[in-house]
Design a protein around this nucleic acid. Structure first.
Lengths: 337, 337
DNA sequence: GTTAGCACTCGTCAGCGTCGGCTGCTAGAA
DNA sequence: TTCTAGCAGCCGACGCTGACGAGTGCTAAC
């Protein structure tokens, strides 16, 4: 559809624009990129690319700037051909992260920081939901007569906890009994499985209102485990981008990103139905209106439905090749733990 | 030192400047504030206030703007007299927070969000360190032959965890034995106390290299518990402040605030030696050079050395009265849990 | 100690002309 | 056909200018 040279012109224009954040003219392209043709020819190509919707002029007599569609074509090209998925991307970073992190939370934190530094964009790491994780152990720790703490440990080392309040005082022995029951019910299963199995497996458990109360709290705890566990690093990187020199341009974006539910929704949207190792959403492709000016490169990690998400968010004028490789590296670092 | 009227002129000027973010002139002050004197008199007062270093002119023939020292005088005045500490500040917010939060982490998150909304500034809540917290229970959960998870539960409901790797396979029974030993050693004590007591109380424990390994990990886990547990909410509020309209003005500030160690250091500095319910650091009073343009209102919550911190960070041109009351309310919400 | 009046300062803003970069078009070459 | 060279034209960036107005400091009078 696009002639080979025009594809190259588009790539060159994007590369140049990503690097300098200024509209790119025909002369600049011929001077800095070995296109083998004169500026006049490039002008014709640019005109054609503009007609096709890949680039646009901010105003007459300025150079061209890529549109969302232009970036999209560029990225599709990148993904289909150029990028070697199997090659270890930044393997050193992966190894280093793995070696130093002794806690899942710390690993997430450090990965996010490394990703932000590497890409000079905002990076987000969302902890996997516990919904699909297999439960290793449930502890019930008494805090007082009327309060106890449920602590869930998943097989991958994730930990979640939640307080339970009792209307009447509960003896330590009762807690121990409930704990034992819960472990019989949950150990080795995911919560979803356990729910299905509960009625047949351990019917006597459900007779006890205390057990049911605690079980409900466990469910609530798991449900909420996705929220409030997003690590964001690199806001200051975004502040330094020329497209956000006016802070008000960034304000609605940050408002959206500070809200966990919006963030998770954006990631769900981006990853939905895509089986590629990482999804790229450019500008208006993002569901959220506020994010029309940024691109999201997201990748799931972990397993199954409740997988975590690692993502980079930056201006649409980002170095997609670098970002995609970096996200992929982060995904590896987080997956095999 | 400052005559009563001049004090009032200063307060009026600050109030006006906080509201409009524009240099304030003598006429505006006489028109909007019942000072009972003419603009000319106010001009003399302004001149005196400028000589004393409380206000400054951005340029000749512009109005005046408060300096750090001016804000300082204003805040000292506020703290010494006007602000009724004992009055319930936003008690409804406190109650509402307490009612809905079922988890310490969630309480922190929600408190931070409420604080950011109330003050329209950035709010930060740092979890208390486990250093001073009494340990309720230690669990040792086997993840595989060579790995286990240490889970600490403190008496106030805080939870921390950390993975331990073993060089040789460790049997579940051995883990159970270590767990039992650790509980005998730690339960009801803070880690600091336990360390002191360890040698005499349970000498046989330290003979076992495995126990020592796990104990070391517990110590490391506690040590690190202060880090990576800061909730920040309200970056977008800062982006909307006129002083940060140029994003580059905010970039160094955000760089500093994104770094947990810098953040904790700033809070330590601010709270050091102050026994007031909340510390106010204005502009250059902050240790960190990058934070010269913002004010920090911080308050410890919880108990003892490892107390958590709740703080609001905004432009020096902030509504100190509102912010101080809000921080105080947040501190209450977090303290009595 | 306070006030009115006045001269002065200086940043802001709109208007204007120059400069330079980039385009589209057309005619001619490969 | 496809590419190239040259040219006319467009338009934003930038620097200059003068009018405007907000605000000050000073002085003399109350």
């Amino acid at each position: 559809m696009l002639s080979d040279r025009r594809q190259r012109v588009l790539s060159a224009l994007i590369e140049e624009y990503v690097a300098r954040a200024l509209p790119v003219g025909s002369r600049t392209l011929t001077e800095r990129y070995a296109l083998g043709v004169s500026p006049a020819t490039v002008r014709n190509d640019l005109s054609a690319l503009e007609d096709a919707g890949y680039i646009t002029q901010p105003h007459t007599s300025a150079g061209r700037v890529p549109t969302d569609a232009g970036y999209r074509a560029f990225v599709d090209d990148l993904l289909s051909g150029g990028l070697a998925w199997d090659e270890a991307p930044h393997q050193d970073v992966v190894d280093q992260l793995r070696a130093t992190a002794t806690e899942l939370d710390a690993l997430m934190e450090q990965t996010s920081a490394a990703l932000a530094r590497l890409t000079d964009c905002l990076s987000v790491v969302v902890a996997p939901s516990l919904m699909a994780a297999r439960i290793r152990q449930v502890s019930l720790v008494s805090l007082s007569d009327h309060r106890a703490l449920v602590v869930l440990v998943a097989e991958d080392g994730q930990v979640a906890n939640r307080q339970v309040s009792f209307a009447d005082a509960v003896a330590p022995e009762a807690l121990a009994r409930i704990q034992e029951l819960l472990n019989r019910l949950l150990a080795g299963r995911s919560l979803a499985e356990a729910r299905a199995a509960a009625y047949e497996a351990v019917p006597e458990a459900l007779a006890d209102p205390l057990v049911r109360l605690v079980l409900e709290e466990v469910a609530a705890c798991v449900q909420e485990s996705g929220l409030g566990r997003a690590h964001r690093v690199g806001v200051s990187s975004l502040l330094r981008k020329p497209e956000f020199a006016q802070a008000q341009a960034l304000a609605p974006i940050m408002s959206a990103l500070e809200d966990d539910t919006v963030l998770l929704h954006v990631f769900d949207d981006a990853l939905d139905g895509s089986c590629a190792p990482c999804a790229v959403r450019i500008g208006r492709e993002n569901g959220a209106e506020a994010l029309a000016g940024v691109s999201v490169v997201a990748s799931p990690y972990g397993w199954g439905d409740g997988a975590g998400v690692v993502a980079v968010i930056g201006p649409t004028r980002m170095d997609y090749s670098l970002v995609i490789r970096a996200v992929r590296a982060a995904q590896r670092a987080l997956s095999d733990e």
